[in-house]
């Protein structure tokens, strides 16, 4: 395991930002740490990097205790934290040069690595410009490059696409996925963007108010918590039909729209009995589509369960 935590807790006065968090993150994965704003994601990263002391529990990162041996953790980790953390008066090249020196790269290694990363991200031509004049998307790309510069075995990315427009976010995601697969790095990615988590992560954990709600592979979570969604398209749907479906044991939820009826099924339940029921009640079906629930539905369900 590259990260292992046991009952990790951090309190700020009366607020518990991270509450008895236990995680196991294997090497070579992109681990998605999902949660709404204020869930404790950033605090967890700070604890794992040794920038905060835990109020309770323990953590082991890259085989080291971040409190007692934070230097060893930080030596082997890269980070893009809440802010890009770039020196805006300096050029892109100077920013990477600085962190390359910190990372212990020789002058030759720095030159080739900076060129390699900037070229890969399409930023090489603008390497001499001061970063302050760049768009947010370009800055985020540069910050990702900085995190990967010294080829750390583990990188922390705290909401890397936050505040980016959809095109810039998609471009950054693509670059990130390509670079991670090429370099074989383990990534601890926090996000509240579920599409991002779904596309990038091989493992995810969902956190709310500092508490871990679920963890596992996205497919497993979808199967375990989201089940299957069936969309009935046609005419003649009535509230009575929705009620009749809702009382069935295999149905987790029903949403009635003008010419659509969306039904969440508990597990791999058959759809045929529902079709029979609806047609018997007078609905005219034109199409029945069955699909796996998205991570967003799993997330919503977890948030609702927790709120109850």
């Amino acid at each position: 395991m590259i990260i292992h935590t046991e009952g990790l807790t951090r309190r700020f006065g009366t607020l518990t930002a991270v509450d008895r968090l236990s995680l196991e993150i294997p090497r070579g994965t992109i681990f998605g740490f999902l949660g709404p704003n204020g869930a404790g994601k950033t605090t967890t990263i700070r604890l794992l990097l040794g920038l905060l002391e835990p109020s309770g529990g323990r953590a082991e990162v890259l085989g080291h205790d971040p409190v007692a041996d934070g230097d060893a953790v930080r030596r082997q980790a890269g980070a893009l934290l809440e802010h890009a953390g770039l020196y805006e008066r300096l050029s892109a090249e100077a920013n990477l040069e600085f962190y390359g020196r910190i990372g212990g790269l020789t002058a030759g290694e720095r030159r080739s690595r900076v060129r390699e990363l900037l070229a890969h991200l399409g930023l090489w031509e603008r390497r001499g410009e001061s970063v302050g004049s760049w768009s947010r998307g370009m800055k985020q790309k540069l910050a990702v490059a900085r995190a990967m510069l010294h080829r750390p075995p583990l990188i922390f990315l705290d909401e890397p696409t936050a505040g980016l427009d959809p095109l810039a976010a998609a471009a950054l995601r693509e670059d990130l996925a390509a670079m991670v697969s090429r370099e074989g790095t383990t990534v601890f990615l926090t996000t509240h963007n579920l599409t991002e988590a779904e596309r990038l992560c091989s493992q995810v954990a969902v956190i709310r108010q500092g508490r871990l709600l679920a963890t596992g592979r996205p497919d497993d979570l979808r199967r375990r918590l989201g089940g299957t969604r069936v969309e009935f398209a046609g005419t003649g749907f009535t509230p009575a039909m929705a009620t009749a479906l809702e009382v069935r044991p295999e149905v987790a939820g029903v949403t009635l729209q003008s010419e659509r009826l969306l039904v969440n099924l508990q597990e791999e339940a058959p759809v045929a009995p529902l079709v029979s029921l609806l047609t018997a009640m007078g609905a005219s079906l034109e199409e029945v589509r069955r699909e796996q629930a998205g991570l967003d539905e799993v997330f919503r369900q977890l948030m609702e369960e927790e709120a109850c």
Partner: peptide
């Protein structure tokens, strides 16, 4: 907003 990144370095 560069302090945290600097502190997160080795």
């Amino acid at each position: 907003h560069t302090l945290e990144t600097l502190l997160a370095s080795r």
